[in-house]
Design a protein around this nucleic acid. Structure first.
Lengths: 370, 370
DNA sequence: TTGTAAGCGTTATCAG
DNA sequence: CTGATAACGCTTACAA
């Protein structure tokens, strides 16, 4: 692999001149520049990124740490991150599957010197603390939806508001026995959704009933598996709000297999608005958390500070959610509802994200904390 | 940010000793080691990756260049790559959205010195040539399904065989007028699928008819948009094989809206086996190209050579496909078919990939070239 | 067991 | 405009 020295020697100039040519420095005579470029091309020379970033202490790279690359939600987040970073000529150093805070910690450390800024997607509280401790030495944005005020820049999904809006919607459709299929314990998104559900029940004057809250783990399998438990609740609920779409999909499929009609006998709703929901029969009513936008905005928060090599101010920004009313909640059965939708063709993802119907969720909070 | 020198000074040792501590070198006295670690922790020191890789010329990172991060197929490939790389403690430097060969070229150059090896997903022939030219100076594996023999390690999807198997299947179901919705021009995957389709028709003694080949672009929108063209073909086809699932999904939806029954009046099949196909009504018959496995195997091909800093031998490996028979082809209507499947619950992705029914496609080619 | 010193391939700061 | 030369933060002979 040719180095700057090889090019300099071959072109009969100093390494400084070669460096200038590759840094668009205007102080090089056109002929010299031309000559250097020619030699460089011939020798297949390209500046070494590691050496460059060692001296400039700029890497033009952003680290992204997330618990899992699995599922449509995360992959959309990554896509948003990548595209936003690319616009500013930044690259993405990916680091997924960090189960616990320790793993996260060492993953982050391994990125030292290779990145100008860091994005962490953390669904648990422990990891959030680790990130807090890094924030002073590296520009960091945390994508984390816990209710707690953290001493670092945080981008949160408005889980509570989304769940609130969804549950209100079910109440408005006349449901009085509304169950919830919860997400994994310790997952802050799941916890916030549960809080929103409870708040809506309280608001509607409905009794809180622990029997209505089923344990889940965000997997489709579990959505299917808990159907017997759901049907065994006395008196039987008429609606269930699942903490994510994957579980809702498993549940709809299993309910159908059991012979329970959705939404007539059991309204089922989800959270996330993954693409499959639109192809389910009946189409899934859900809450959209725009994953692409989440990634995009996280980069927007991080990048200016990464470029300036300054800590990101501790601020909490909330990404609003939208209630997406389709058929699985039974809204189409209620003649007065304005939420029923004509069945028309929908593109798979990108375009759909932008133009989809559905109403704004109650809360468009975008507050500052700390 | 603390450097190795700060730690050395504070701990009262030389920088070499600090370095040894962080490189598991056994030649450090336990007490010294302990002391250094303590100081390092206090100063929040961690070795700088750029400096480290400058001297060792090892980065423990793999570059991944792909045309687009969009869609389930690519995101699954990435997941396969990430997990396989992680096992060997390698990180992933992502670089997506490279429309043309030039963009690819500069993207790759920007990675010089930051990666030990490169994975390129290229659906067009021009990019493949660029990669060929890099292969001598950097370990590279190209994920590319063109029929051409390239002077670099190539991992290909058995598109031709998959399409052949699908078309044979339609022929076996009794169809004689089988249309094809093609992919974008210049896309080698699309072209290979078209070749496979034609080969099967010829084999079955059916006439080649240009009118049966509709132009498409892999988008769901186009699958929907070309329905009028499909229905206008005289005599009307009884089956259509779409070059990917997204188009097939758009088409099924649009056909239903038009009042054409699928599969009774028009059998529709796809290629890729994306998750949504399983939730479509009727469920989509398709060809599985295991994206996760593709990524995983690409890393398997690349990593040993990346670690040894040696070129990857020019070899062509083909990843077999499988025919996945569901309802949209009408197989369930044919009593004698053994391909009809009971409707049972299917997990969303990971687990499903492993256990799914369906028969092996004809060709399990895994050949060497050059 | 530890220290000294020579790079790794750049960019940046000076002189010329 | 161009050329020496000193960093950047680290690993690794070689010496002690």
């Amino acid at each position: 692999m040719a180095t700057i020295r090889d090019v300099a020697r071959e072109a009969g100039v100093s390494i400084a001149t070669v460096s200038r040519v590759f840094n668009q420095s205007a102080l090089v005579r056109p002929e010299t520049c031309e000559n250097v470029r020619e030699v460089a091309a011939r020798l297949d020379y390209w500046p070494n990124g590691a050496a460059r970033s060692l001296i400039t202490s700029r890497t033009l790279a952003l680290g992204v740490v997330l618990p899992d690359l699995h599922g449509e939600f995360f992959s959309e987040v990554i896509r948003g991150i990548d595209l936003a970073a690319r616009r500013e000529r930044f690259q993405i150093l990916l680091s997924s599957s960090h189960a616990d805070a320790d793993a996260l910690n060492s993953a982050v450390r391994a990125l030292r010197g290779r990145i100008d800024g860091l994005l962490v997607l953390s669904p648990d509280a422990g990891s959030a603390r680790v990130v807090e401790s890094i924030a002073s030495s590296l520009p960091v944005v945390l994508i984390h939806s816990g209710p707690d005020t953290l001493a670092c820049a945080t981008l949160a999904i408005a889980n509570h508001d989304g769940a609130l809006a969804m549950t209100r919607h079910l109440v408005a459709l006349g449901h009085r026995r509304i169950a919830m299929l919860c997400g994994p314990a310790g997952n802050v998104d799941a916890e916030e959704r549960l809080r929103g559900y409870r708040a809506a029940l309280t608001e509607a004057g409905l009794m809180q009933d622990a029997a209505l809250e089923l344990a889940g783990d965000f997997s489709e399998e579990c959505g299917a598996a808990c159907v017997p438990d759901l049907l065994a609740i006395e008196p039987r609920p008429t609606a269930i709000f699942c903490a994510n779409d994957a579980m809702a999909i498993g549940m709809v499929t299993a309910l159908r297999d059991t012979g329970v009609r959705v939404p007539e006998e059991m309204a089922v709703t989800g959270f996330d608005d993954i693409a499959i929901g639109r192809y389910l029969t009946p189409q899934l009513t859900t809450v959209r958390a725009d994953a692409y936008e989440l990634g995009e905005r996280a980069v927007g928060m991080l990048l200016p500070h990464a470029q300036a090599r300054q800590p990101v101010p501790a601020e909490r920004v909330s990404v609003p959610t939208r209630l997406i009313v389709r058929a699985s909640c039974g809204a189409a059965l209620v003649p007065t509802s304005d939420a029923a939708q004509p069945r028309r063709h929908r593109p798979l993802a990108a375009a759909a994200r932008r133009e989809e119907d559905g109403r704004e969720a109650a809360g468009r909070d975008r507050g500052r904390v700390s």
